[in-house]
Design a protein around this nucleic acid. Sequence first.
DNA 1: CTGAAAGCGCTAACAC
DNA 2: GTGTTAGCGCTTTCAG
Lengths: 334, 334
Amino acid sequence: MKVKKPTMLDIANQVGVTKATVSMVLNKKDELISPETRDKILKVADELGYIPNSFARSLITKKSGTIGIIIPDITNPFFAEIARAIEDEANRLQYNVIFCNTDNQVPKEESAIRLLIGKLVDGVIFIAGGTSETSLALLNQHAVSFVLVDRYIPGCEDYPGVYCMSDDGVMDGVRHLYEKGRRKIAYVRGPRELRVFEYRVNAYKEMMTTLGIYDERYVYEVLPSLEAGIAVTEQIARDVPDVDGIIYCNDMTAMGGLKALTRLGYHVPRDISIIGYDNIKISQFIEPELTTVAQPIAEMGEAACNLLINIINEVPLKEQKIFLYAELVVRGTS
Amino acid sequence: MKVKKPTMLDIANQVGVTKATVSMVLNKKDELISPETRDKILKVADELGYIPNSFARSLITKKSGTIGIIIPDITNPFFAEIARAIEDEANRLQYNVIFCNTDNQVPKEESAIRLLIGKLVDGVIFIAGGTSETSLALLNQHAVSFVLVDRYIPGCEDYPGVYCMSDDGVMDGVRHLYEKGRRKIAYVRGPRELRVFEYRVNAYKEMMTTLGIYDERYVYEVLPSLEAGIAVTEQIARDVPDVDGIIYCNDMTAMGGLKALTRLGYHVPRDISIIGYDNIKISQFIEPELTTVAQPIAEMGEAACNLLINIINEVPLKEQKIFLYAELVVRGTS
DNA sequence: CTGAAAGCGCTAACAC
DNA sequence: GTGTTAGCGCTTTCAG
């Protein structure tokens, strides 16, 4: 365990040059270094198993080649998928990533941001847990570039970000059920603090109203999760026994709903249709497969990463807000 | 964007002391600092929004307070859950984590390790993709502490690690199906390169033989995934139409199997019983819920993290290998 | 083509 | 109680 790691100085001594020369060679700024010394340096570096100390480099360059990702919970499939997409794109562009889970708690967000700033991340991709103005203030104060993804922060709609427009997708979902003959279509919405859920339920209301079948008693609110999906669906079945369609604010909740309905003896989609939102991978793992309003999850992650890195590199951008669109995917539950 | 971050020197100047004093105060080594200067320093640090530059500190202390986690794929629920457990425990112990996905490819493992070494991680938790001796050699060469989790590496059985013993759990599963009257029990195994899969299928063979119902034609091999689970299950239904039980090497594959069987018109568990392995969260998301041989995923992550940090701190340990046990959890599919 | 020298922000002896 | 000093490993002018 007491093996000292080789440094540039070790290489320099062994080759008989100075570390400045070694530095230039190893950083490919070797136009004016003689091929012989260059090859010798490369050779010795390889023999010694030299790995540059990125801290020393970052200290001086003020860049870490790392971006931070702040996410509510990596075990939530939606976030895992987006995180993976970001990481892949970051790696492609020669960046590394550090993840921080916040469980939607603002204090955890702030400590994550402190951590990331201390590690000199070049930028941060931020999926907010709610009203996170103070977290953003921290980032601004320390002049760290950032990009918002998926979730709006009230009052911060003008920050750079990647958002998914849900209206058309949700409306298509409602219309799709209507065309299947469904009339009593309930909606399970997420918490009011999160703007995204507001948009989704509003689209539902609008289309239901247009179709002349809106009834406010059909709208239920939950903290989205599988368990909540089960509970609320049992509730709906009690309140509106002849309900024939349920649209959920996300896939996890919808999967819980499917479970509850099956247990209650409903046959999906014969007796009732259900629709989720997100299109996480596991929505296809079940049978019947979940009809859902699909977010382009991978594209969102990729776009966020690209946007951030462009901002970091001060590439002039016409628009720092990117809008993608959710789309209805009809599968087995409708 | 051009706001210079405050450093210790800024604080020192403003208070009228030197940065050494500031350093001691901020690191809580302030027994011999007068309360007045201490408070003044703390106050100014707060006003300036000072965040220590962890690189500068790490450069000198040779520690980063960070551990690396090398994992095949974070979108795989099993790994996401273990990663999250590791992260939580690490945070509790004041460590941060950096994740690297390898997609089970050895070259990606090696570049991940180089990255982590360059970032001076204090240790690495390693879920190997296969025969990763060279990756381990790199870690050894650079004197980086590491801990293996879940997967054995052939020839490296004696490295510190956290492993889950599957034998009893799998045998209990076979016996359980036998007691339900099942006799034609197939097994879907994972790839031979991964030792864990070898152990699981061997336990199956042993119990099947003991019960006098082993037939080698019932054993199928796949690269575990939902899709593979579907495909292999269709194959089994063709080969052995009167199969009445299938045990899978993991939950994802079993979920694919359940899907395939349902589509083929089998009723699970009336016509056929199935059992998975892992007990990932989503195994309870489906209906019927999956009977499975549960690994204590969270405990594995937690134990790995603790073990690693003990090794890093050179805490003398009686045993650097931790064995946990998988256990049959009977739910709806058996 | 290569060397010398300065310095990034911080810690840790050792003075005073 | 606090300052001085050196140096971690690296990059980057500027000389030569």
